[in-house]
Protein backbone atom coordinates (compact mmCIF):
# COMPACT_ATOMS: atom_id res chain seq x y z
CA UNK A 1 0.00 0.00 0.00
CA UNK A 2 2.76 2.41 0.93
CA UNK A 3 4.55 1.53 -2.25
CA UNK A 4 1.48 2.47 -4.32
CA UNK A 5 1.17 5.84 -2.57
CA UNK A 6 4.82 6.52 -3.14
CA UNK A 7 4.43 5.52 -6.78
CA UNK A 8 1.46 7.85 -7.27
CA UNK A 9 3.32 10.70 -5.62
CA UNK A 10 6.26 10.14 -7.91
CA UNK A 11 3.98 10.23 -10.98
CA UNK A 12 2.35 13.48 -9.82
CA UNK A 13 5.70 15.15 -9.25
CA UNK A 14 6.76 14.03 -12.68
CA UNK A 15 3.66 15.60 -14.22
CA UNK A 16 4.26 18.81 -12.30
CA UNK A 17 7.86 19.02 -13.41
CA UNK A 18 6.77 18.45 -16.97
CA UNK A 19 4.41 21.40 -16.50
CA UNK A 20 2.55 22.43 -19.68
CA UNK A 21 4.00 19.76 -21.93
CA UNK A 22 1.27 18.11 -23.95
CA UNK A 23 1.18 14.78 -25.64
CA UNK A 24 -0.02 15.93 -29.07
CA UNK A 25 1.03 13.04 -31.26
CA UNK A 26 -0.35 9.57 -30.88
CA UNK A 27 0.08 6.14 -32.34
CA UNK A 28 -0.50 6.05 -36.10
CA UNK A 29 -1.48 2.85 -37.84
CA UNK A 30 0.61 2.38 -40.94
CA UNK A 31 -1.67 0.24 -43.10
CA UNK A 32 -0.09 1.10 -46.41
CA UNK A 33 1.98 -2.03 -46.71
CA UNK A 34 0.60 -4.41 -44.11
CA UNK A 35 -2.09 -5.22 -44.96
CA UNK A 36 -1.78 -3.70 -48.39
CA UNK A 37 -5.28 -2.41 -49.01
CA UNK A 38 -4.78 0.79 -51.04
CA UNK A 39 -4.42 0.07 -54.73
CA UNK A 40 -4.50 3.36 -56.63
CA UNK A 41 -1.54 3.91 -58.89
CA UNK A 42 0.73 6.94 -58.82
CA UNK A 43 0.01 8.26 -62.30
CA UNK A 44 -3.74 8.01 -61.68
CA UNK A 45 -3.50 9.71 -58.28
CA UNK A 46 -1.45 12.52 -59.78
CA UNK A 47 -3.90 13.13 -62.59
CA UNK A 48 -6.70 13.30 -60.00
CA UNK A 49 -4.67 15.83 -58.01
CA UNK A 50 -4.21 17.93 -61.15
CA UNK A 51 -7.94 17.71 -61.83
CA UNK A 52 -8.73 19.03 -58.32
CA UNK A 53 -6.63 22.11 -59.15
CA UNK A 54 -8.38 22.45 -62.52
CA UNK A 55 -11.81 22.43 -60.85
CA UNK A 56 -10.69 25.16 -58.45
CA UNK A 57 -9.24 27.18 -61.30
CA UNK A 58 -12.63 26.95 -63.03
CA UNK A 59 -14.25 28.06 -59.75
CA UNK A 60 -12.02 31.13 -59.66
CA UNK A 61 -12.72 31.97 -63.31
CA UNK A 62 -16.48 31.82 -62.65
CA UNK A 63 -15.97 34.01 -59.59
CA UNK A 64 -14.35 36.63 -61.84
CA UNK A 65 -17.30 36.39 -64.25
CA UNK A 66 -19.72 36.91 -61.38
CA UNK A 67 -17.70 39.90 -60.17
CA UNK A 68 -17.77 41.48 -63.63
CA UNK A 69 -21.53 41.16 -64.16
CA UNK A 70 -22.23 42.40 -60.62
CA UNK A 71 -20.61 45.76 -61.43
CA UNK A 72 -22.77 48.91 -61.36
CA UNK A 73 -21.80 49.88 -64.91
CA UNK A 74 -22.45 46.37 -66.24
CA UNK A 75 -25.57 45.67 -64.17
CA UNK A 76 -26.44 42.10 -65.11
CA UNK A 77 -27.46 40.59 -61.76
CA UNK A 78 -28.91 37.50 -63.42
CA UNK A 79 -25.61 36.68 -65.08
CA UNK A 80 -23.75 37.46 -61.82
CA UNK A 81 -25.99 35.08 -59.87
CA UNK A 82 -25.54 32.31 -62.44
CA UNK A 83 -21.75 32.66 -62.46
CA UNK A 84 -21.40 32.88 -58.66
CA UNK A 85 -23.45 29.68 -58.40
CA UNK A 86 -21.26 28.05 -61.07
CA UNK A 87 -18.17 29.02 -59.04
CA UNK A 88 -19.52 27.30 -55.92
CA UNK A 89 -20.43 24.26 -58.02
CA UNK A 90 -16.87 23.96 -59.34
CA UNK A 91 -15.57 24.17 -55.79
CA UNK A 92 -17.93 21.32 -54.88
CA UNK A 93 -16.49 19.26 -57.76
CA UNK A 94 -13.01 19.68 -56.29
CA UNK A 95 -14.33 18.60 -52.88
CA UNK A 96 -15.99 15.53 -54.43
CA UNK A 97 -12.73 14.47 -56.04
CA UNK A 98 -10.92 14.97 -52.72
CA UNK A 99 -13.54 12.84 -50.96
CA UNK A 100 -13.06 10.12 -53.55
CA UNK A 101 -9.29 10.01 -52.97
CA UNK A 102 -9.88 9.88 -49.20
CA UNK A 103 -12.30 6.99 -49.65
CA UNK A 104 -9.63 5.09 -51.57
CA UNK A 105 -7.14 5.54 -48.74
CA UNK A 106 -5.16 8.30 -50.42
CA UNK A 107 -4.12 11.80 -49.27
CA UNK A 108 -2.21 10.38 -46.32
CA UNK A 109 0.71 12.63 -47.22
CA UNK A 110 1.39 15.66 -49.43
CA UNK A 111 -1.97 17.18 -48.52
CA UNK A 112 -0.48 20.66 -48.15
CA UNK A 113 0.55 20.81 -51.81
CA UNK A 114 -2.81 19.65 -53.13
CA UNK A 115 -3.99 23.23 -53.74
CA UNK A 116 -1.71 26.10 -54.85
CA UNK A 117 -1.42 28.85 -52.26
CA UNK A 118 -2.88 31.28 -54.78
CA UNK A 119 -5.02 30.55 -57.83
CA UNK A 120 -5.31 33.48 -60.21
CA UNK A 121 -7.81 34.18 -62.96
CA UNK A 122 -7.10 34.66 -66.66
CA UNK A 123 -9.84 37.06 -67.68
CA UNK A 124 -11.72 39.70 -65.71
CA UNK A 125 -13.80 41.59 -68.30
CA UNK A 126 -16.31 40.59 -70.92
CA UNK A 127 -17.78 42.55 -73.82
CA UNK A 128 -21.23 41.07 -73.33
CA UNK A 129 -23.22 38.37 -71.63
CA UNK A 130 -23.05 36.38 -74.84
CA UNK A 131 -19.25 36.48 -74.88
CA UNK A 132 -19.14 35.31 -71.25
CA UNK A 133 -21.57 32.46 -71.91
CA UNK A 134 -19.47 31.33 -74.87
CA UNK A 135 -16.39 31.53 -72.63
CA UNK A 136 -18.17 29.42 -70.03
CA UNK A 137 -19.02 26.81 -72.65
CA UNK A 138 -15.39 26.73 -73.75
CA UNK A 139 -14.27 26.41 -70.12
CA UNK A 140 -16.62 23.46 -69.57
CA UNK A 141 -15.47 21.78 -72.78
CA UNK A 142 -11.88 22.06 -71.56
CA UNK A 143 -12.81 20.56 -68.18
CA UNK A 144 -14.59 17.69 -69.94
CA UNK A 145 -11.49 17.03 -72.00
CA UNK A 146 -9.36 17.00 -68.86
CA UNK A 147 -11.69 14.52 -67.12
CA UNK A 148 -11.42 12.27 -70.15
CA UNK A 149 -7.65 12.62 -69.79
CA UNK A 150 -7.87 11.40 -66.18
CA UNK A 151 -10.04 8.48 -67.31
CA UNK A 152 -7.47 7.56 -69.93
CA UNK A 153 -4.57 7.68 -67.45
CA UNK A 154 -6.43 5.59 -64.87
CA UNK A 155 -7.41 3.02 -67.53
CA UNK A 156 -4.12 2.62 -69.32
CA UNK A 157 -1.76 2.95 -66.38
CA UNK A 158 0.79 0.22 -65.85
CA UNK A 159 -1.11 -2.30 -63.78
CA UNK A 160 -4.84 -2.95 -63.69
CA UNK A 161 -7.49 -0.60 -65.02
CA UNK A 162 -8.96 1.40 -62.13
CA UNK A 163 -12.54 0.44 -63.02
CA UNK A 164 -14.22 1.98 -60.04
CA UNK A 165 -12.73 5.46 -60.47
CA UNK A 166 -13.23 5.30 -64.24
CA UNK A 167 -16.87 4.38 -63.67
CA UNK A 168 -17.29 7.22 -61.16
CA UNK A 169 -15.74 9.75 -63.51
CA UNK A 170 -17.63 8.67 -66.61
CA UNK A 171 -20.92 7.98 -64.83
CA UNK A 172 -21.11 10.90 -62.47
CA UNK A 173 -18.66 13.57 -63.57
CA UNK A 174 -18.98 13.35 -67.33
CA UNK A 175 -22.75 13.08 -67.00
CA UNK A 176 -22.80 16.37 -65.14
CA UNK A 177 -20.37 17.95 -67.63
CA UNK A 178 -22.52 17.01 -70.64
CA UNK A 179 -25.73 18.19 -68.99
CA UNK A 180 -24.02 21.43 -67.99
CA UNK A 181 -22.66 22.00 -71.47
CA UNK A 182 -26.04 21.37 -73.06
CA UNK A 183 -27.57 23.90 -70.68
CA UNK A 184 -25.03 26.61 -71.50
CA UNK A 185 -25.22 25.89 -75.24
CA UNK A 186 -29.00 26.29 -75.06
CA UNK A 187 -28.60 29.60 -73.25
CA UNK A 188 -26.10 30.81 -75.87
CA UNK A 189 -28.59 30.17 -78.67
CA UNK A 190 -31.54 31.69 -76.83
CA UNK A 191 -29.54 34.79 -75.97
CA UNK A 192 -28.22 35.26 -79.49
CA UNK A 193 -31.77 34.95 -80.83
CA UNK A 194 -32.92 37.54 -78.24
CA UNK A 195 -30.15 39.87 -79.37
CA UNK A 196 -30.46 39.38 -83.12
CA UNK A 197 -33.02 42.15 -83.55
CA UNK A 198 -33.11 43.64 -80.08
CA UNK A 199 -29.47 43.89 -78.97
CA UNK A 200 -29.28 45.56 -75.57
CA UNK A 201 -32.96 44.96 -74.83
CA UNK A 202 -32.49 41.27 -75.54
CA UNK A 203 -29.66 41.02 -73.02
CA UNK A 204 -31.67 43.01 -70.46
CA UNK A 205 -34.63 40.62 -70.74
CA UNK A 206 -32.42 37.55 -70.71
CA UNK A 207 -30.70 38.79 -67.56
CA UNK A 208 -34.00 39.27 -65.72
CA UNK A 209 -35.10 35.79 -66.75
CA UNK A 210 -31.82 34.37 -65.41
CA UNK A 211 -32.39 36.25 -62.16
CA UNK A 212 -35.85 34.81 -61.62
CA UNK A 213 -34.80 31.33 -62.73
CA UNK A 214 -37.03 31.29 -65.81
CA UNK A 215 -34.43 29.93 -68.20
Amino acid sequence: MKAIVAGTLLLCTFALVKGEELQCSHKQEELKTDPNWTDMKHSCINSMRTQIQAELRAAMQYLAMGAHFARDTVNRPGFAKMFFEAASEERQHAIKLISYLLMRGELISDVSTLIDSYIGVEKTEWESGLEALKNALQLEAQVTKKIKGVVKVCEDQPGPNDWHLVDYLTGEFLEEQYKGQRDIAGKVSTLSKFMDKHGALGEFLFDKKLLSGEL
Binding site: A64, G66, D110, S112
Partner: peptide, 30 residues
Amino acid sequence: IEQITTRGGVMEFVPPKALNGVEKTNNVYQ
Protein backbone atom coordinates in the same frame (compact mmCIF):
# COMPACT_ATOMS: atom_id res chain seq x y z
CA ILE B 1 -17.39 40.82 -53.98
CA GLU B 2 -21.10 41.68 -54.07
CA GLN B 3 -20.56 44.41 -51.46
CA ILE B 4 -17.64 45.89 -53.43
CA THR B 5 -19.76 46.04 -56.58
CA THR B 6 -22.78 47.36 -54.68
CA ARG B 7 -20.68 50.40 -53.83
CA GLY B 8 -19.48 50.85 -57.39
CA GLY B 9 -16.12 49.14 -56.94
CA VAL B 10 -14.39 46.64 -59.20
CA MET B 11 -13.16 43.38 -57.71
CA GLU B 12 -9.53 42.54 -58.45
CA PHE B 13 -8.17 39.02 -58.17
CA VAL B 14 -4.71 39.41 -56.67
CA PRO B 15 -2.77 37.52 -53.98
CA PRO B 16 -3.75 38.96 -50.57
CA LYS B 17 -1.19 40.60 -48.30
CA ALA B 18 -1.53 37.62 -45.92
CA LEU B 19 0.50 35.58 -48.42
CA ASN B 20 3.43 38.01 -48.45
CA GLY B 21 6.58 36.46 -47.12
CA VAL B 22 4.85 33.23 -46.18
CA GLU B 23 6.85 30.37 -47.55
CA LYS B 24 4.80 27.28 -48.09
CA THR B 25 6.39 24.31 -46.43
CA ASN B 26 5.28 20.82 -47.16
CA ASN B 27 3.52 19.90 -43.95
CA VAL B 28 1.94 23.17 -43.08
CA TYR B 29 -1.65 21.83 -43.06
CA GLN B 30 -0.93 18.31 -41.81
